[in-house]
């Protein structure tokens, strides 16, 4: 079910967390709110859930105005970065909480909890306490708990932020699959552009309480709306008035047409790919991404002088 966000503004003291933000989230989609810390993305998510009240603006859920509704009445599932597990309840009791509050029949609750335990792959963990689970398991429990009352929308606030890199990568794939199974409208907040690009259909890029661009991952990378998106989503360095991605630079041992002189500062071998950090003749550092073969042919080494030429540039008015 869709979410419509209209002209939301929110101040915390002197800090303008959100500045007249409007965005639509399609029903059934998987959307990322991406931005650096302090960009207002978490605040926006909490406002949608009713956990925070905007100074002005409106929120509609599934076409109905929800601006005046308490969190209890919004029908929103919320997942927190630090799990917010009910520590004194077992996994089963945690998941059943939303259903118990709604006074569903006992056998229905038991059935639904069993179903969800299977969905989040925690069968056999039902009688454990959250303290006996790993971070990844706790977060899956939190997800099952949020999904139990069949919310209209599922909101996740930096859901993988507290997990280590490997579990994080696993849960990303898993969230994607879960969404394909449930088709619940899902919005998650992240500051990690790779996470946003990998998981979401649609990415909302935020900065300083405003929305910079709303687009699919590919469009965001290939056609960034402005310099902020260009440099925040993927890497980019400045070449004169233009911006260039690290893989859109050619290195050659000899000067050529439109090339600039640079010195190799560091070469990092990342398996198939090699990342070279260079310093331009005007002192500006920048990065180049090459294949291993290219790097070997150039015999890249620290201190070496090479010539760079952009093959693709982006300029913003």
């Amino acid at each position: 079910m869709s979410i419509e966000i209209r002209n939301i503004s929110k101040r915390f003291g002197d800090f303008q967390a959100l500045d007249d933000v409007s965005v639509d989230v399609d029903g059934g989609s998987l959307t990322a709110l991406l931005g650096p810390s302090g960009s207002g993305k978490s605040t926006l998510l909490r406002i949608v859930a009713g956990l925070e009240w905007p100074d002005s603006g409106e929120i509609s859920l599934a076409g109905e105005d929800a601006s005046g509704l308490t969190p209890q009445k919004r029908g929103v599932g919320f997942v927190f970065q630090h799990y917010a597990a009910f520590k004194h309840m077992t996994v089963r009791e945690n998941i059943a909480f939303g259903l118990k509050v709604r006074k569903r029949p006992k056998d229905e609750i038991a059935r639904r909890v069993q179903e969800l335990l299977a969905l989040v792959q925690l069968q056999g963990f039902g009688d454990r306490f959250p303290a006996q689970l790993s971070g990844g398991q706790r977060q899956r429990m939190a997800l099952a708990r949020a999904l139990a009352p069949e919310p209209k929308v599922l909101l996740l606030d930096e859901p993988f932020g507290a997990l280590d890199a490997r579990v994080r990568a696993e849960l990303r794939v898993w969230l994607r699959r879960l969404h394909e199974e449930t088709h619940t409208t899902t919005v998650f907040v992240t500051h990690d552009q790779e996470e946003a690009m990998e998981v979401a259909d649609n990415v909302v890029v935020m900065n300083k309480g405003r929305i910079e661009q709303v687009a699919g991952p590919r469009e965001l990378y290939d056609a960034p709306a402005n310099e902020f998106v260009m440099s925040f989503v993927g890497q980019a360095s400045r070449f004169g008035a233009a911006w260039v991605r690290p893989h859109d630079l050619r290195l050659s041992p000899t000067p050529g047409d439109g090339s600039r002189e640079a010195m190799v500062d560091r070469v990092a071998h990342l398996g198939f790919e090699v990342r070279a950090e260079l310093v331009r003749d005007d002192g500006e550092p920048f990065a180049v991404q090459l294949t291993r073969n290219e790097a070997e042919q150039l015999e890249l080494a620290r201190g070496q002088i090479v010539y760079v030429r952009p093959t693709r540039e982006t300029t913003f008015a």
């Binding site: 859930a49 009713g50 956990l51 308490t70 969190p71 209890q72 919004r74 929103v76 599932g77 919320f78 927190f80 630090h82 917010a84 597990a85 009910f86 520590k87 004194h88 909480f97 939303g98 509050v101 709604r102 939190a142 708990r145 949020a146 139990a148 009352p149």
Partner: peptide, 27 residues
């Protein structure tokens, strides 16, 4: 006390009284 557990309970539909009784009080 983790305030987010109370927020989680609220978004799961628990009234303020229920939040106190089921989440805060046991802790």
């Amino acid at each position: 006390l983790d305030r987010e557990t109370e927020e989680a309970a609220r978004s799961l539909g628990a009234s303020e009284l229920r939040v106190f009784r089921s989440i805060v009080l046991p802790n």
